[in-house]
Write a protein that binds this DNA or RNA. Structure first.
Lengths: 185, 185
DNA sequence: TTCGTTTGAGACATCCGTGTTTCAAATGAT
DNA sequence: ATCATTTGAAACACGGATGTCTCAAACGAA
């Protein structure tokens, strides 16, 4: 077999991380396939982007599940919540490395279905942050949605730091956690 | 007089904050001017974007100057540096409200001259953060470029929080400062 | 009012990205 | 080796955005 569908998806994501404005022709070239074949796998650019966006959301959902944020929130146990928070942020860092382009690309949010699913995942995470506030793990005086946006913004910072080589890959989780929890002073 | 050049610039920025992918036709309509007139003021879309991007950079530079970050850094006085840091972040919040679209829009960074100037401003700010670290105002164990990226990421969080109404405008500076300096725990 | 300037509407050419189709070549299984 | 399937290259149509141009209308100053 030449280049499979999954491989196309992977390579397309990699290329979009470098150039989020890539055209179908550029994506075809980057994935080692002709424009015609790319259209045989995906009906159009919109469908391709929906698939890639769904992959990114799959990764996000998987991170939430592996960190068991719902169970930790339900337990109301500070230790469990703290552990889940660490696992969540660590997993998100991995995800950002793979699907970082989806973070700030405005085109993704206009595709059918993606925004709704992203909102659901965000709401789940907000519920977790709220439980963390109630358990004394996170400050209760900050708006919980601000906390959610803070994580989002810091992930953008992570993406840029890794892209520009400002922080070593092996240090980034600890740096993110330190900054998020204790700040910069 | 009908609509002046400065007014076009202001309205165009406002519209791009809502729709960063706006076409020249949409910008003409949003600024209350015909497409022909828009082209009389600006040779092309690239020139228009360069002008708008320069405005955003002007605002950034003005904030740095008004906060007197260079003088504060040179003084090595913790109190002065702290004051400058507060003024810097407060000013950046204002700037983000006006020129938020330029924060994450990739098209801006490819325009001639803009990236170079943005790099200069960033380097000045990094020098200030470094002085803040040496003065004990900011943690010395974090990479200074990470701190710079953190500010950038948190400004993205500020933009989104204001856009979605998650945080009141009058609370956002304090919230940002608290989060940046002391973290979320 | 008169005259020079500015503007808007529309037509037009051009470019670029998307999407489709065709056909020959490459591939792969038997 | 044969035959069915898949692929690539090229050509084509199409739409949207950009940029240019013209001319009549609106405007503003004298």
């Amino acid at each position: 077999m030449a280049v499979g569908r999954d491989q196309i998806i992977t390579l397309a994501i990699q290329h979009l991380n470098e150039d989020p404005t890539a055209s179908m022709a550029q994506l075809a070239e980057a994935t080692g396939v002709s424009r015609a074949t790319l259209h045989r796998y995906f009906a159009g650019k919109e469908e391709l982007l929906v698939v890639l966006g769904s992959r990114a959301l799959d990764g996000w959902e998987r991170v939430q599940r592996q960190a068991a944020i719902e169970e930790a929130a339900a337990s109301a146990d500070p230790a469990r919540i703290t552990t889940a928070l660490h696992e969540l942020l660590t997993g998100l860092v991995n995800d950002v490395q793979e699907h970082g382009f989806a973070l700030t690309e405005h085109v993704m949010t206009k595709l059918p279905g993606l925004q709704e699913r992203a909102d659901e995942l965000e709401e789940r995470e907000i519920a977790f942050y709220l439980a963390a506030q109630r358990a004394g793990v996170l400050r209760p005086d900050l708006p919980v949605r601000w906390i959610s946006n803070t994580v989002y913004g810091l992930l953008v910072a992570v993406r840029e730091s890794l892209r520009r080589g400002d922080v070593a890959r092996r240090d980034i989780e600890r740096t993110l956690l330190e900054t998020f929890l204790r700040g910069t002073s």
